[in-house]
Write a protein that binds this DNA or RNA. Sequence first.
DNA 1: AAGTGGTCTAGACCACGTG
DNA 2: ACGTGGTCTAGACCACTTT
Lengths: 240, 240
Amino acid sequence: MSRAEYPVYLQLRDRLWTWIEQEQLCSQQKLPSERELSERFGTTRVTIRQALSQLEAEGLIFRSNRRGWYITPERLRYDPSRDIGFNHYVTEQGFSPRTETLFKELTEMPPWLSEITGLPVGTPIYHVFRRRYVNERGLLVEHNFINPAKCPGLLSESTDLSIWKMLKEQYDLVPDHRDIEIYPLALKGLEAESLNVNQGTAGLYIHRLSFDQEGEFLELDREYWLHDALKISVHVGSRH
Amino acid sequence: MSRAEYPVYLQLRDRLWTWIEQEQLCSQQKLPSERELSERFGTTRVTIRQALSQLEAEGLIFRSNRRGWYITPERLRYDPSRDIGFNHYVTEQGFSPRTETLFKELTEMPPWLSEITGLPVGTPIYHVFRRRYVNERGLLVEHNFINPAKCPGLLSESTDLSIWKMLKEQYDLVPDHRDIEIYPLALKGLEAESLNVNQGTAGLYIHRLSFDQEGEFLELDREYWLHDALKISVHVGSRH
DNA sequence: AAGTGGTCTAGACCACGTG
DNA sequence: ACGTGGTCTAGACCACTTT
């Protein structure tokens, strides 16, 4: 006997959940249309959408803008403290990675970045904006701000692969220490558009500021992930 | 000239944002009622609620269940890799911490925990469930699972303060290494109720599994944070 | 007792994606 | 061209909080 005040949309969430299990829908499969679902479950579109949003928040399903609802794939494990590239740890987990460079440019350091790096406003800086896929689902977009003094000519190379690897192998640059910040936020503007999600979709922000052995600014990474796309996993202390 | 397709609720979000700035509403202050806002901004309650939900997702405002909308305080900085207690780092940042023990018990290790710790199902285990406040806003609830073999009698002490500190000072237990997991999720059931938020509110899950020098299970922490409450901040590498 | 937020209905229009 | 998801309206009832 369910409690009387248990709202319809939560009942629907549960019924949808079991329905999805019964139908054995798998990763990336599409759900029926909202109108069809609202008929099938005997409610209005508004209410079924509330239930779908619940499942979205819980990470069971996701939506691609104006294209419908899909089953969310398993989360990607990610260790931001490790020095390996995206492609490496994605393939390591048996998935298929892809990176698209949306733009890259040589620009001048804006005030907010100057505050972080300690370098003067207007210092030349590389800016790369990329989108990363796992199994052809876009999971994150990423802004890279790189110190050109450390790696002249970087932008003329392809940036569709690991920037880490290039810095290491071609410029012998290895980050010595790093400040990492992580927090949930809403995906908005350019980031939401690039990931084909609605304005305000839940996301996770990861910020990595790297310095070299001399304590000089190497690179800043600003990653905007879908909230359901990853599980951060870090080992701290001895005994790796 | 705004683009024609710029939806009303996003315009409302922007207008609400500037309105809040103009009114100079501060941390924890209450917004007017939804009906009043919808009148003031010339729209319906449904649409104003959509705009409010946007601002909620962005972390500018939050709601306390059935009590209305409030301005979100500044995020708490938090380093899960450091060995200091909640009270310590909250006061360090000039805030006022409080911890409530919702229950504590000696129970038997369930299968899911057994898988994680490697200890057999049914092994005695302490279970503490606590709620933590900053400036009287409940920011997280936390399940602690502690190995009683390492600290007999722990439950008879007050658990309203730092468990870390007790383990260290009274039992001489210091974690040697730790597995940390972090990911966004929806707050549901007990966790949502305890934090007085709606089912499905965005949250952040932090999981810390600690072992001692012998590699034996010490403690498991499972923290459920409000999504807008914290900013994880970690330093990696040399030069602290 | 009054007012609030949470929920729900039964429609509607539009821009966009897909066939 | 059609159907879809995204948006929006104008109501309504209820449980709960606050006065």
